[in-house]
Amino acid sequence: MVNDSKNAPDTGQQGRARRMAVLAQADPRQLACLWRDLGIDPAFSLVRGPETGLVTLRGRIGGGGSPFNFGEATVTRATVRLGNGAVGHAWMLGRDHAKAKLAAVIDALAADPAMERSIEASLIAPLARSAADADDAKRAETAATRVDFFTMVWGED
């Protein structure tokens, strides 16, 4: 999910990056539904945001050459602190403040290993599955438009 070759990531960091990526991509309605089903409502305070700003997107010349800036995207981020002192962050494309705040709360909750398992099972796994299903559907629809060439032969010899 996350291409992170520079920092040698431990599994906790990898897991957190993956969780944040799944939350960033999640459909806000599905996330809100799953969160409600989880039935927890921790007290928290906002440390930063939620706030919307810009991230400048980079590509590479020719696809793999030197980087260049090719545009900007709206990004929303939030940082929260739970009653127990755990701090959570969220960064995601778009301008959905409610979703960013909720994702930051989930990130903070996941600092607790027991809670992390429950979040993984009840939130992250179903969200990741929905995203993977949507990608599979798109891949299959695209694959149906692939050209199968065949040759025709005219005349003798």
């Binding site: 996350v2 992170d4 990056a17 944040m20 990526a21 960033a24 960064w91």
Partner: peptide, 23 residues
């Protein structure tokens, strides 16, 4: 394509979602 940003407060890169592009 996936958009990843190095998050200063975390010290590692996180995917913020995907954008559609034409190359």
């Amino acid at each position: 394509v996936e958009v990843s940003v190095d998050i200063p407060e975390l010290g590692f890169a996180v995917s913020l979602g995907r954008v559609q592009v034409t190359e």
